[in-house]
């Protein structure tokens, strides 16, 4: 089959490959910079050293921002998982024609520009005393995480055969027992990937945090932002590398569990 000329096909493929390389290659520039020996940033470094990592660990500001980030991300994940999973279970019980409206309502925080959400929450959290607190920041992050939990759990719910739950209750199981033994194990992969998504979104989030975190809940991205607006230091590259590591590890974990899930599904067929 001829269809498109081989030469133009090859050219397009090369162009595509260049674009993909452009997407991925630059991301990891901060990693070599963090192992630099010199006190200024140089890529690639002439001599490798871990001294900026120890500088990071000894700096109370950087370390407390790292712990704040973990605290906020964990609380965000918990809030988003509860709200998003319950809503996904609710969507599944609605008539098909009503679903798009309800899903649209839950997804609507993603449509509003982040800067608008940020200043609105800044205004409100100050008036109710949640400005600069881990709770206030986690609730704000949950706003953009709930939609992703809902979507992830909904995908697993659609794969679940409703007859299973019906059979269980027909055999006399109470609703709570059906949920624990049939529904929850089946949607668990969706809950897990939704949770991983929520954690990463919160851990990476900058704009809302810049407005809500204050001094009390200053996260790693906020600290990093403040630092690189002034100067590029190797310690900032260490902070970036840590954010990158958290994300990549979670990404690999969700991919591995997705692969396990797929091979399990193929095996049962």
């Amino acid at each position: 089959m001829r269809r498109f000329k081989p030469s133009s096909q090859a050219l397009t493929q090369i162009a595509g490959a260049v674009v993909l390389a452009f997407l991925v290659m630059p991301i990891f520039a901060v990693v070599p910079a963090s192992f630099n020996q010199a006190s200024f940033i140089k890529i690639p470094p002439e001599e490798l050293s871990l001294q900026w990592y120890s500088a990071f660990i000894e700096d109370r500001g950087w370390m407390s921002s790292l712990f704040n980030s973990i605290r906020v991300a964990l609380l965000t994940t918990a809030i988003a998982l509860v709200i998003g999973t319950l809503a996904a279970l609710g969507v599944e019980r609605l008539p098909k024609r009503m679903r798009p409206f309800v899903i649209g309502a839950v997804l609507s925080p993603l449509i509003v520009p982040v800067i608008m959400i940020s200043i609105a929450l800044y205004y409100v959290t100050r008036s109710i005393g949640l400005y600069g607190t881990v709770t206030g920041l986690a609730l704000s992050h949950a706003l953009i995480c709930v939609p992703f939990v809902l979507l992830n759990v909904s995908v697993s719910l659609q794969r679940l055969d409703p007859n299973l739950a019906r059979a269980a209750s027909g055999l006399g199981a109470r609703p709570g027992y059906v949920f624990r033994t049939v529904t929850l194990p089946a949607i668990w992969p969706g809950v897990a990937s939704g949770g991983a998504f929520a954690f990463v979104l919160s851990f990476d989030e900058v704009v809302i945090s810049l407005f809500i975190a204050g001094y009390g809940a200053k996260t790693l991205p906020v600290k990093l932002w403040e630092q690189i607006r002034v100067e590029f230091t190797p310690v900032a590259a260490v902070g970036s590398t840590l954010i990158l590591t958290f994300t990549v590890v979670l990404f690999i974990l969700t991919r591995l569990s997705a692969r396990k899930r797929n091979s399990a599904a193929e095996g049962s067929q």
Binding site: P26, F28, V30, V206, I243
Partner: peptide
């Protein structure tokens, strides 16, 4: 998945 801030900082260094 990767932080916009980290990606932007990478470009600043590059």
């Amino acid at each position: 998945w990767i932080s916009i801030l980290v990606r932007t900082f990478s470009w600043m260094l590059l």
